[in-house]
Amino acid sequence: MRRLRRSMLFVPGNNPGMIRDAYIYGSDSIMFDLEDSVSIHEKDAARFLVYNALTTIDYGDKELVVRINDLGSGLGLADLEAIVRARPDVIRLPKTDSAEDVLQCEREIARIEREAGIPLGQTGMMAAIETANGVLHAYEIATSSKRLIGIALGAEDYVTDLKTVRSDGTELFFARNMILNAARAAQIDAVDTVFSDVNDEEGFLAEARLIKQLGFNGKSVLNPRQIAPLHAVFMPSEKDLAKARAVVEALEEAKQRGSGVASLNGKMIDKPVAMRAQYLIELAEAGKPATMGEGV
């Protein structure tokens, strides 16, 4: 089963309480942040804390992501030296403007993997696109490295770069579509930006529905309260699920008959329909715990 990335929970890297509790909220991925949520004077402390948490705490099957500082800041390389050795699933690179940004980071990760005796290529990468320049290079970024599991939109810096502010999402329409299309063309995941006003539940839900309809895999979230509603948005309806199950059953039946062609209600099931049905069932399976009190 593919890994779902409906929700990626930001956890400030210098907050031991949140680092300890991060796995209980039910997000698909946990993203420990060494960048914007950590003051410049505490970068070393956050590095020690996240490294020791990752090498000690059992987060079960959660995908573990660490957002490092960009290499140009003078902090990113020290982050990589520590974090690659702590062996998270994914390193998230902020402020990615070009393929070279990804490749530069990849070269350092590969060097550290070799020095540390970690299987080459084991550390995944994710690139956050946060500028107009980055958006225009989205496809080049998305296809730059086999380590990339996805690309993400970082909207706060992006809207500043555009000389606007966040509103109903109109200002993000181009960036979202560029990033989504680039990710799909590269066959990797697309993760939407955070919704900052954690008290605006209606606004959050409207944005979640929008990005799901556009085709995003999920969103980054700032507050654990946003996880359950977000997963609910991604939960298929009973009607869609019943249809998906019927498609999968018909495919299974055709397979057992030794037939390469499956049909349902007189219509042939083609590959995209089969893939969508399978994805819906995976979403529904993943959504089950949410109905049993997951999230807060």
Partner: peptide
């Protein structure tokens, strides 16, 4: 009420700051 890993992280950080060094050797995790 810190976990052991937090205690360890804070001691290591304080010691490196107090030693005015930043050349910590990161071991590979399992």
């Amino acid at each position: 009420g810190a976990l052991d890993c937090t205690v360890r992280a804070r001691v290591l950080c304080a010691a490196y700051r107090a030693a005015e060094r930043d050349d910590f050797t990161w071991e590979v995790g399992v």
